[in-house]
Amino acid sequence: MNHLRRLVLKGGAGGGALACALAAGLLRPTRAHAAEWNKAAFESKTLADALKHVGADAAAESADIHIKAPEVAENGAVIPIEVTCRMAGAESIALLAEKNPFPLMAHAALANGTEGYLNTRFKMGQSSVVKVVVKAGGKHYIASREIKVTIGGCGG
């Protein structure tokens, strides 16, 4: 009896505190500073759709985005791609592979002094044009680079 009473009291107090915190907006149910995963963009099956969902369907070609990647990748499962943008104030970098089942590969938001630079390893199903979209000063810029893949990295 006493044990139950204690449990009930504890539960009530805990729940109450949580409700208060929720109401005050201290504890948001979603992740604190991570934006929600852009499902529509990542599940787009065509390059045009994916570009639209990252807001870059009217991006201007730019020579200031440098994509360092192998011309011929032997293993499509591990393709190192390094992006460097020379323009000031890069806010986000998105990478897309035209012929992947889902073209959008990654979308990074940069803040607080992060340079326009990203280095990651990607998977590609087949030879394709890789597009890099950089948002800087509210505008989108795009650059492309073709990567040939000898063995696809999407499995099958």
């Binding site: 500073h33 940069l110 803040a111």
Partner: peptide
């Protein structure tokens, strides 16, 4: 985050390789 300042927030699709490596650079 660096000293509680968010510096990179990356959303990834399945096209990132197994055992991912992310490299980035932060001024300030």
């Amino acid at each position: 985050t660096i000293n509680d300042r968010p510096v990179l927030n990356m959303q990834c699709g399945p096209a990132i390789s197994k055992n991912p490596v992310f490299g980035f650079r932060v001024r300030d």
